[in-house]
Design a protein around this nucleic acid. Sequence first.
DNA 1: TGAACTATTGTAAAAACTTGCAATAAGGAT
DNA 2: ATCCTTATTGCAAGTTTTTACAATAGTTCA
Lengths: 138, 138
Amino acid sequence: MTCVSEYSPQLHALGFRTTSQRMTILHVLRHAGGHLSPKQVYDLACREMPSLTEPTIYRTLEFLAENGLVLAAHVGNGKIVYELSNGNHHHLICRNCGRSLEIEHAPLQKLYRQLESSTGYKLDSSHVTFFGLCPGCQ
Amino acid sequence: MTCVSEYSPQLHALGFRTTSQRMTILHVLRHAGGHLSPKQVYDLACREMPSLTEPTIYRTLEFLAENGLVLAAHVGNGKIVYELSNGNHHHLICRNCGRSLEIEHAPLQKLYRQLESSTGYKLDSSHVTFFGLCPGCQ
DNA sequence: TGAACTATTGTAAAAACTTGCAATAAGGAT
DNA sequence: ATCCTTATTGCAAGTTTTTACAATAGTTCA
């Protein structure tokens, strides 16, 4: 399945346009697998499409995150990283060594229902980051 | 209780020095009550101490957060805000209007224990941010 | 297919944040 | 009180991120 054939219909269904910039950025994220910082996305995407500019990278990543095509995760000091949103998972990050672990959404489900009923908010099950110390750093 | 008499011993106990820059920044955060962005801290702190510089603000906020005197919270798009760390609470933020709600730590306690035993990590109970839609924006 | 509409991108400049290094000043010892 | 050590700050320059607006290029419709 190519990036275009997969993502173009999703964008179209939401009323947005398919552009080569968006396809390139999605392709880079898919190819990379894990998290990438905006800078990393920029560097990799420029290889495939040298005309890409920084504002486009930032705007597109934010746009894709808002529309659920990618996941924006907070990792450490106010830094934000992006990855393809394949399934719901969360992160647990060691604040000493920075090593991160993925957490399934399932164990959070009960808490989510509880918070939703007590606050009236409808929670995004998209992403939460927990910080702590990994076994090696304790 | 003044800022100096409260925070100076805390810093000293951790082996750090009491400086007027740190006291000014803590004073600003205490006086403000809620979250402040680094820029807001800078603007307010400069009124009390015009010689303060931006690098000092950023470094000091990060330093204070690392040492538990202030809390660094992620609010929205990769932005980080700081507040005095009075008690453990978490945030629930509406991704549409940005309105935030504080959540007690208690309801998360069970989840924390569960995650700690399944991952081996020792979790900071300091801060987690949930995103969702508030009742008004749904 | 071509024209029209407007979402999206590029440009240029500003604002926010970071880094390395030299100067300063807090805290301990004399 | 003064000196010494070194943590902390300021400075200057760099990098990252944002903004406003004009130019471009998807998409729809005739």
